[in-house]
Simulated assay, not measured.
Amino acid sequence: MFECELISKNDIILAGFSFSGPFPQSFPSEAVKVQQRLGSRKSEFPPSVNTGMLFSPYSVCDSIATYWACYEVQEGDLIPEGMVTFTLPGHSYAKVNCTNKKIGDGYREVFNWMKKNSYIQLKDAWSIELFYIEDTEEELVEILIPVK
Rank of each mutant, 00 (worst) to 15 (best):
M1Q: 13
F2D: 01
E5V: 06
N10T: 09
D11H: 13
D11R: 14
D11S: 15
D11V: 08
I13A: 12
L14H: 10
A15T: 08
F19G: 07
G21H: 11
F23I: 03
P24I: 09
Q25D: 13
Q25G: 09
S26E: 14
A31F: 06
A31H: 15
V32E: 12
Q35H: 05
Q35M: 13
Q35G: 15
S40K: 15
R41N: 11
E44G: 01
P47H: 11
P47Y: 08
P47E: 13
V49P: 00
N50P: 05
N50A: 08
T51R: 07
T51Q: 03
G52H: 14
L54V: 15
L54D: 01
L54H: 01
S56M: 10
Y58V: 02
S59P: 00
C61G: 02
S63T: 13
T66K: 14
T66N: 10
W68A: 00
E72W: 05
Q74D: 03
G76L: 03
L78W: 00
G82A: 06
M83E: 10
F86G: 08
T87S: 13
L88A: 05
S92E: 12
S92R: 14
Y93A: 03
K95A: 03
V96W: 07
C98E: 01
N100W: 06
K101S: 07
I103V: 14
I103H: 05
G104D: 10
D105N: 12
Y107V: 08
R108N: 12
V110T: 04
F111P: 03
N112G: 08
M114Y: 07
N117P: 07
Q121L: 09
Q121A: 14
Q121Y: 01
L122P: 00
K123V: 07
D124V: 00
W126E: 10
S127T: 09
I128K: 07
F131T: 07
E134I: 00
D135M: 08
T136G: 04
E138I: 14
E139F: 00
E139I: 06
L144P: 01
P146Q: 09
P146A: 06
P146D: 04
V147L: 04
